[in-house]
């Protein structure tokens, strides 16, 4: 019995053993509980068009999206996806990407697709996967 215990103990130790890959410093642990994510209302000031779009998005967040509950199964949500898409490509290509995303969103069986799931069960689907540059496509979660 003792032997088994010792064996278990030793194996547990060796399992633990190496987790220091670099020299570390003190890391004070915060007592606070993490806050849930809310919509990001920050204005995008990278260009006139983007500013207008993010103002429109904020209006949508404020008057509709913040009031009608959590409806989008994707992360980023459709509106955030649209802005990302426009920023990454152009207004025309971004609109096409958004149209495709919108169609995928109204598909009742999107759970059968291959979207990776985030801890909050949302489907991770960033706009960078749809820019038609295969090097930008990533399947790993952020």
């Amino acid at each position: 019995m003792k032997f088994i215990f010792m064996l278990f103990f030793l194996s547990a130790v060796s399992l633990f053993a190496q987790n220091e890959f670099v020299k570390w410093e003190a890391a004070p642990a915060s007592y606070e509980i993490n806050n849930a994510d809310r919509h990001d209302y920050t204005l995008d000031r990278s260009g006139f068009g983007m500013t207008i779009l993010s103002v429109l998005r904020n209006g949508y967040y404020f008057f509709v999206s913040d009031l009608d509950g959590d409806n989008c199964a994707f992360s980023p949500s459709c509106s955030a996806f649209f802005l990302q898409a426009v920023k990454e490509t152009s207004i025309f290509k971004g609109a096409l990407m958004f149209a495709d995303r919108f169609t995928r969103d109204i598909n009742f069986f999107k759970g059968l697709n291959h979207y990776p799931q985030l801890p909050d069960r949302k489907f991770y689907d960033p706009s960078s996967n749809y820019t038609l540059h295969s090097a930008k496509i990533k399947f790993n979660l952020p």
């Binding site: 913040d66 009031l67 509950g69």
Partner: peptide
């Protein structure tokens, strides 16, 4: 229905 459900969800949040 969307805004009705949203109101309940929001209250909880």
């Amino acid at each position: 229905l969307r805004f009705y459900r949203g109101a309940i969800q929001n209250a909880e949040e």
